[in-house]
Write a protein that binds this DNA or RNA. Structure first.
Lengths: 122, 122
DNA sequence: ATGATATACATAGACAGGCGATACATGAAC
DNA sequence: GTTCATGTATCGCCTGTCTATGTATATCAT
């Protein structure tokens, strides 16, 4: 019930993930969704209702730019990183790394105690 | 100023951090605040307006239990993990670890490309 | 051909977590 | 006696994510 899906931890890092998905090549929304799912081995499911507004926001912030492709039957909106977006990607990835290491350190310490609690409540 | 503070990434993991702060010994709110800041070398600043409601929520979920101490001049509300809380801590820490590794893998891949972009836009 | 499913984009409303502001009370320092 | 650190608490706001819904085309099985 109270279980939080792993996608819950994503909060605040979705920008980063989407940016990272665009690092190697331009992609359209649906493709970003698929490639994130693939790259994360199914851990990351970005909902369409989350992704598209997010993409619009990134574009408004000039971190990505888009162009429509009507040549195929299904219209696709291709997104690519702007230089600013690429810069943001590296910066934010770096920040995340620092944060993750910090968390790991803290959790390692706590888990040591968790296995042998002071109160001996177990 | 679209800069997000590192505390922004905390979203959804604050429960976990607070739980971890209580792993080794019982603490009261203000002390949790201080010890998290110390353990994270200043990276994690839990606001009072965030912490206390969170603590109440954890207690409602039976993950922690509290008791007032009026013996000193300043009244303090001491919190300690329940067995359920300890279980949640280990479980959630494990989940986080998996998630973090996943993120790291994805970012490493992306950053490789970020330094040598396909479009050569740099 | 008809209907189900996958592709593809989009918006709207609800919800929850975290933040800033504010409040109040005690103890210590000056 | 006033200022600062301690200590707990609530409220309203913002933002990010989710669910539900809507539209339209391509593909595949029946």
């Amino acid at each position: 019930m109270g279980e939080k899906s792993s996608t819950d931890m994503i909060h605040g890092n979705l920008d980063l993930l989407v940016l990272s998905a665009l690092a190697d090549e331009r992609k359209y929304g649906y493709l970003i969704q698929q490639s994130l799912a693939a790259a994360s081995a199914g851990m990351v499911h970005v909902q369409a209702g989350t992704l598209y507004p997010l993409l619009h926001r990134l574009e408004a912030e000039k971190l990505v730019r888009s162009s429509w492709d009507h040549s195929t039957g299904r219209k696709r909106k291709w997104y690519e990183l702007t230089p600013a977006g690429r810069k943001r990607l590296t910066h934010q990835a770096d920040q995340w790394q620092q944060y993750a290491e910090c968390m790991s350190r803290m959790l390692r310490g706590a888990l040591g105690s968790a296995l042998s609690p002071a109160g001996g409540t177990l």
